[in-house]
Design a protein around this nucleic acid. Sequence first.
DNA 1: CTGAAAGCGCTTACAG
DNA 2: CTGAAAGCGCTTACAG
Lengths: 338, 338
Amino acid sequence: MVTIYDIAQKTGFSAPTVSKVLNGTGSISEATRQQILSAAREMDYKPNMSARSLITKKSYLIGIIFEDSLMRRGFEHPLFGGVLNVFRQEMEKEGYDLIFLSNTSTNSAQTYLDRCRYRNVDAVVVINPQDKQDEILQIAAAGIPCISTNEIIEGVPLVITQNEQAGYVAGEHFVKNGHKNLGFIAGGASNYSRASTERLAGFRKALKDNGIILEESCVYRCKTWFRDEAKLGMKELLTARPDITGVFVSNDNMAAGAAECCEEMGLSIPNDISIIGFDDETLSSFMNPPLTTFRQDREQIAKTAVQMLLDMLKGNDVEECVRVPSVFVPRKSVKKLN
Amino acid sequence: MVTIYDIAQKTGFSAPTVSKVLNGTGSISEATRQQILSAAREMDYKPNMSARSLITKKSYLIGIIFEDSLMRRGFEHPLFGGVLNVFRQEMEKEGYDLIFLSNTSTNSAQTYLDRCRYRNVDAVVVINPQDKQDEILQIAAAGIPCISTNEIIEGVPLVITQNEQAGYVAGEHFVKNGHKNLGFIAGGASNYSRASTERLAGFRKALKDNGIILEESCVYRCKTWFRDEAKLGMKELLTARPDITGVFVSNDNMAAGAAECCEEMGLSIPNDISIIGFDDETLSSFMNPPLTTFRQDREQIAKTAVQMLLDMLKGNDVEECVRVPSVFVPRKSVKKLN
DNA sequence: CTGAAAGCGCTTACAG
DNA sequence: CTGAAAGCGCTTACAG
């Protein structure tokens, strides 16, 4: 391993001078600059980040909190895998590397903040919803820039889909197609989730604006985001309210569960029941019929998060919350009535 | 930030003694051990990895090479996203953290080896196929333990699916169901890929063992792993060989393309054409009819890779190549003839 | 069993 | 414009 001392020795300058040239700091004569630079190139010098980080307290490391205990889809989750991917690309362009913040540390219970300190990360991104909100607050409180791309955590800047607007569009779409008796199946995590709450609010508002009141008996709140629970929910909903003709389901995976329920009940989609999902998973276009759904804009979410985090890294204040529009993907799971 | 000097000062011992206690090295009296440990706990001491790494040359960091330029599925790839996820969990249990090795470094062209040195990684895992085999060889040549979970790189230990065996099972399945005229659509990357080669070899052998010769006109070799090219390939195959009744396609995504082709040609699956895919993507069970396919065992692949890497980290030799069986998932896309 | 000394590779005041 | 000195937080011989 070649160090700045090797370069100093070879060129006859001192280590600090070499350091300044390599970092572009201080004032250095052009001649020595060139000499040192070419020596560095020739010797194939590579900086040692540990040493640099030790003294500058800057690591060019972004800690990723990716803990998918609630959705259980890992990196394959249609939104979070995509967000992580784009986030990574954009951050690397800026010279930052991504490191996973471990939450399964064997050696004693370590908090996320402990891990941040251990690895000296410059900033943190929280990719998916999870239950350790208190630990994330610790990070923010410690002054480490931190951003969330989904979970709403008071005091942590957030980039998230315009859920309410999407809910409104879903409601409008049903109404436009002549549906009056509608249902809603919400996803959740131990309790009913925020994203679902927002989608429901928009949905309800769209109906209300069209003179339709969404009754409580038409809303089923799941405690998970799993297909099976949605299937069950659909059954309850349709049994309690056989008048329902269309249901907005909180994600495609759950919509698939709802569709399964319909099939078992001998109901045809969209002839008997219309369905709108959320997330535009790959499977959605393969469902029979292809599922009408919404696509969350992972690109935009990730890029916005990167910009904001970069801003925070510079010490600037950023907005508390940026909302990113989703894209409505109409397919064939909603029937036009009359 | 509390350092070992703070602990030394508080307890009256020296920094080296504190260090030894914290690391469990050297011989220390039980009394001082307890004193120092409790002081550390009380002061909420956290080691600084940069400092430790600088001197020990060990970072407890595993570099991930995840560069999905060929499949373009990012973390959502049914195999690689899953492998990374399990690999991460297992590695973290062992006290290692995962860091992405950047390949888009803005500041001058850096090789993966440069990035390894920069970040001081202890070992490297290559998750998906990519074209920078030479750079990966550099890593191995530099003595950094390195393992691949898919790409075959001479000299780099490999954990990979038993592709040939899977191909054999696919061939047998067709034959058992009375198929005699079979086709094969291979996936590839710029050139025809190794995984496909292996699957083809097994497929061909199964047919041969049953007295059937797979002619070259029944094999279509794609240059990508994309759906569209498979769709095109299916068209060519079926046009050139209208006698074909069953096709083995290199992945499910491509199988979906092949199915699309059939639909456009007015051919029904499985009545006119039977199809077997590979990967068991979520979409596969939603296809119409549900696709018969193979599931690669991400869990087993990742866990094996971790064990081997751990072994290499200890300085042990490991096997050159470990093959993991895949699971055959029969569904409804293969017709039983006569 | 414990500690004084040196050093990992680098950067930051500071002096000239 | 350049360099001597000090130090980041830690560990490793080595001596006692």
